[in-house]
C-alpha cells in the first residue's frame, strides 16, 4: 500500500505535514506492508490554477497512491480521489508526516467524508 502525505520541504517522515494537499511543497510517499513502513520517498507536486484541483488527484493516482492523508480539501477533489479508488484520511493535527503515517497505520485516523470538506455549502475545516 502506498500512502501519500502532503509535506513541506524536504519531505520524508520528519518533514512538517502540508496543510493544503493541492498546494503543498511536495508529497512524501510511504510504502507500508502489514502495518509497517517499508520505504519512504518523495514526489514533486504539480502546479495548478483555480478550477484545476483535479491535477494533483490525477498526479497521485498516476503514481500509484492508495491512501492520502490530508488536513483539508474541497468536495471536488475528495470525490475525485474516491472515484480514482484513493481513500482519504483526516490528519490535520499531525505535526509531522511520520506522526500522521503512524497514526494511520495504528488505525487512529478518521476517513475523510463529504461533511468534512471545505465550503460547498458546509463549514470549512481547513484551507
Amino acid at each position: 500500500m502506498i500512502i501519500g502525505i502532503p509535506s513541506t520541504q524536504p519531505g520524508g517522515l520528519d518533514a512538517r505535514f502540508g496543510a493544503h494537499f493541492g498546494h503543498c511543497d511536495l508529497y512524501t510517499l510511504v510504502e507500508a506492508e502489514n502495518g509497517e513502513i517499508k520505504e519512504v520517498r518523495t514526489l514533486p507536486n504539480v502546479p495548478h490554477q483555480q478550477g484545476g484541483c483535479l491535477a494533483p488527484v490525477q498526479h497521485l493516482a498516476d503514481n500509484g497512491v492508495d491512501v492520502l492523508l490530508a488536513g483539508g480539501m474541497g468536495m471536488r477533489p475528495l470525490m475525485g480521489f474516491n472515484q480514482k479508488g484513493i481513500d482519504v484520511y483526516f490528519a490535520a493535527n499531525a505535526p509531522t508526516v511520520g506522526v500522521a503515517v503512524r497514526a494511520f497505520l495504528a488505525g487512529n485516523l478518521q476517513k475523510f467524508t463529504q461533511d468534512l470538506t471545505c465550503g460547498g455549502g458546509g463549514q470549512p475545516i481547513a484551507g
Partner: peptide
C-alpha cells in the same frame, strides 16, 4: 460566487 461555490473546484 467563489465563496458560495468553494470546494467545488469550479472555474471562475
Amino acid at each position: 460566487w467563489h465563496e458560495k461555490s468553494e470546494g467545488l473546484g469550479m472555474l471562475e
